[in-house]
Design a binder for these strands. Structure first.
Lengths: 339, 339
DNA sequence: CTGAAAGCGCTTACAG
DNA sequence: CTGAAAGCGCTTACAG
């Protein structure tokens, strides 16, 4: 028995009357063992309730089969749903997720990185727009494969998986222009990260194609409070907008709540469009027109990219963009003829 | 350098001109090292970017400082928020969270348990009502400390932390009775787990005190679809209810959406009360009257209980119930004189 | 205070 | 196919 009271390969070996190496081989795929030996070992293992110690295995193989997943901001429904799917996809490949909540201060962030390294993770996924460049840079320096989920940073030379954010922004622009909107405001995602910038840029480009400009732009910082304040601000202007494109669904819900509280009808007075298509967007209370981030495809691409880099550390970084369709619901006036 | 290309204590020892044991002592709290030695070692470690390998440390100490967290059903906002707080609280105590998504089939569940054991977790938290008894029983059998979060199972002899669910149900009963409601229906949480049963029992007891009975009861199974169907069913009855107590907020949102879609006004025609007080309950679109599960206190109690059991494995199991206040908002008619 | 040595539980060449 | 042995990176008695 081990120091922790758990059964070891040695215990199984003794019971089965074989060497400890033989026990190990039985639990190693592809190792050569005589069927009779394997049977004896399995019987003994079963009887004792033996399972190889993953930590010991990790020590000698140099592979922990642990992926560090850095998240933040789980109040936005997009992330828990992504977290669940990422975790299941990784489990299906024999990996496990060690969870890290992104820290706020530099000191905490430093510790987070050290812990990530101390646990010998085979790879890292950062699933939050708010991850500092520091984390990504330092992890890359140590040579741990890393994929940014829902955030790009092309200059960094790191892999990323996002939806086609700029294109998504353009789709919203076209849709709102065709819907006859003339004063299209933008309560943007945090402009400190590519995700928010790209969506905004797409909107501007789409408006420019129609000879228009954004009626007003405020950075909502992916924060409900900031978004609500921004909504009040644009509505109190001399000429309020007739449509608002909000940088993500999470803020869009706050914007809709705010408009309704002001007595502004959605979409009769103002159309609202979000980005993400979290499950809640389809719920009756919001019925939000939004750009759908194809979550399963993003998750699959992330896991695939990460595992490919773990297998071949010299692999070039990939920046994948996945097309994001516009989902029309009841929160925005439709172009004529569209239902 | 290690096999994985990472820096080891040996590398640091050579650079600092000391033994490998000395390096280890510098990174072990409470070990005796001369200040001068420590300084040399820290300088070398800094230069090389050294951090002790947590896996190797876990091997010899028998403590991985990893907590297995089993969750499911992250679409219900209660769980991601709990997950975040549990993870942060554990990190603050020097632990890390290995995440497991609860499986559906027995075979998957079997693998989940084996993985949990293989990674030598120091303790387990099951944060989901839908965890099978199997998991809890098997983990207890191996002697790994386990705390059930948001679910009780007193007969099992395992620790648990819940809110005072039965009392919460009573509070709802009293509140609705005082509000003059006469036909109080219950769309319950899953009756296969204590959480749902206790809330229902509390409601019945509270109604009984007023000489009343539940007008109708349907098990909503914590599922949006089931809850929506249940709402339609009770409203289509000959005498529809004038109030519905829903087993958790997640279902209550679906119930409100459904009522509105049927043209039923909330709370003018029907009052709706939930349970949990997830952040979304306070959002304008629902403005849900609900019983607040005191999340921070539940998280603290869970972590405290688990760590106490890790420190002393012979400690008796604890079943903690934390008082849950009723939060009145706009989805339910108020008793006269209350604002 | 410090170093040499044993050992945590495993995998993997290496002989046989 | 199988066992003895080395070794993954660390902690911790044990002498000095």
């Amino acid at each position: 028995m081990s120091v922790s009271g758990r059964v070891t390969a040695q215990d199984v070996a003794e019971l089965a009357g074989v060497s400890q190496s033989a026990v190990s081989r039985v639990f190693t795929v592809g190792a050569s063992v005589a069927p009779a030996t394997a049977a004896k070992v399995r019987a003994a293992a079963e009887q004792l309730g033996y399972r190889p110690n993953s930590l010991a295995r990790a020590m000698i193989t140099g592979k922990s089969r642990i992926i560090g997943l850095v998240v933040a901001y789980l109040e936005n429904q997009f992330y828990p749903v992504a977290l669940e799917k990422l975790s299941r996809a990784l489990e299906a490949q024999g990996y496990h997720v060690l969870l890290f909540m992104a820290a706020n201060t530099d000191g905490e962030m430093e510790r987070l990185i050290e812990d990530l390294l101390a646990y010998q993770v085979d790879g890292i996924i950062t699933a939050s727009v708010a991850i500092s460049n520091d984390v990504t840079r330092r992890c890359a320096a140590v040579g741990i494969p890393l994929v940014m989920f829902n955030r790009g940073q092309p200059e960094s030379g790191l892999s990323s998986v996002t939806s086609a954010n700029a294109l998504g922004g353009r789709k919203v622009a076209r849709f709102l222009v065709e819907g006859g909107h003339e004063r299209i405001a933008h309560i943007s995602g945090w402009q400190g990260a590519s995700t928010g910038r790209d969506r905004a840029r797409g909107l501007y480009e789409g408006l420019a194609e129609a000879g228009m400009e954004a009626h007003a732009v405020i950075d909502g910082m992916y924060d409900r409070e900031m978004a609500a304040r921004a909504a009040r601000e644009v509505m109190h202007a001399t000429t309020p907008p007739d449509a608002i494109f909000v940088g993500n669904d999470h803020m869009a819900f706050a914007v809709i709540d705010t408009l309704r509280a002001m007595g502004v009808a959605v979409p009769q007075d103002v159309s609202v469009v979000g980005y993400d298509d979290v499950p809640m967007a389809a719920w009756g209370a919001y019925d939000l027109t939004t750009v759908r981030q194809p979550l399963m495809r993003m998750v699959e691409a992330t896991v695939e990219t990460l595992l490919a880099q773990i297998k071949d550390p010299d692999r070039a970084a990939q920046n994948l963009e996945i097309d994001a369709p516009l989902i029309t619901r009841g929160s925005a006036r439709l172009p004529e003829g569209v239902t």
